[in-house]
Design a protein around this nucleic acid. Structure first.
Lengths: 191, 191
DNA sequence: TTCGCTATACCGACCGGACGGTTGACAAAC
DNA sequence: GTTTGTCAACCGTCCGGTCGGTATAGCGAA
């Protein structure tokens, strides 16, 4: 029998609550009081664990960065060890279903924007995660620029989705993927 | 002799001031009082022209959307009437110098985020501009998905720049451009 | 066992300041 | 004399952060 997971500790509950608020009601709705109430603690209780709003946001961002890194690692591990493995992981990460629809990513985006709104420097943990991915991307044996172009397209798609800029049907999405996959062919660069 | 342009009217001055504030000191610094002071009017004076903060933001967004549309139109007109003209305009828009470094785009990004922060629906004018560009992109005689992939990559690059996620040198940028230009070849899709 | 002492975790009233918006007045233009 | 544009004072609200206090648990000494 599976005993259900133990109830999370207070800091975790608070971070969860803060994420939920940002996702559901926007950046402006994230106040210390609201987060405390949603987490089932008092404002004083929240401030005991996170000494300021900035500390709360930093906590959210650190957890988010860890989550992104772990998620990408999982996608990468699932890729066959072909050449351009990292690049293919980016493609899978961008286009494979769970990632594109997952409500968790809406939440991530909301947290990201909330942090940027408060202080752009809070994004540093995320920056490090993506810098690391980019470094590995550069080591894929592809013509220079191809992997980066694929990553940029993935980012653009993601951002367009966050901001509600894109409305593409599945067919267009699939066509985009095929186009980018051509760039992921190791021999694609030599005319 | 060129007589200098006449001093802008109050609404224009106010919009300019609001943009300057958002760009220089972030979204949080954009208060009615600050915008009024920066524009050289009183708070009451500002509220005479923009009845609420939301109205002010809507004014900023509308102007921004018009600016973006005009800018893209200019880039498009400068393209030779080759096939895939719109797609090539996107490439030029993304990679050609003035666009990439222009301080005006930092300002645009700041306004964009400020509006999204207050109410995502304010982005509708911008959405319409990009939807129109996307429609034209679809009419470029390219294999399906290629033009969209190029646009997504441009957006990703732009967003990465806004959020400080990318640090690419000129060489990598040029390589990316070459990679994307391969996708803009009309015959590129048929193996 | 029990008495003090301390550390941990949490509470909620309160303060100071900032912000969006209102109001009433006023002066120039028409 | 009405309209247009502008002003300064003011109000109510909300929010981040402080602070004094409480409950619980652990622990060494008497």
């Amino acid at each position: 029998m599976l005993d259900r997971p133990p109830p999370p500790d207070a800091p975790t509950r608070i971070l969860d609550a803060a994420e939920r608020i940002v996702q559901a009601r926007g950046v402006t709705a994230l106040t210390l009081e609201a987060a405390a109430r949603e987490a089932g603690v008092s404002k004083g209780g929240l401030l005991y664990h996170f000494a300021s709003k900035e500390a709360l946001l930093a906590g959210m961002l650190n957890r988010l960065a860890d989550g992104i890194a772990a998620e990408f690692e999982a996608v990468l591990d699932a890729q066959p060890p072909h050449p351009a493995r990292t690049t293919r992981a980016i493609l899978a990460w961008t286009f494979d279903d769970p990632h594109m629809v997952c409500e968790q990513h809406q939440r991530a985006a909301a947290v990201f924007l909330a942090a940027f709104h408060h202080d752009p420097a809070l994004l540093d943990p995320i920056r490090r995660v993506f810098a690391r991915i980019r470094d590995r991307l550069r080591q894929d044996a592809l013509p220079p620029g191809h992997a980066l172009a694929i990553m940029a397209a993935g980012d653009g798609l993601f951002m367009g989705r966050i901001f509600g800029m894109y409305t593409m049907d599945a067919e267009e999405l699939a066509a985009m993927r095929r186009a980018l996959e051509r760039l992921a062919q190791p021999e694609a660069g030599s005319p």
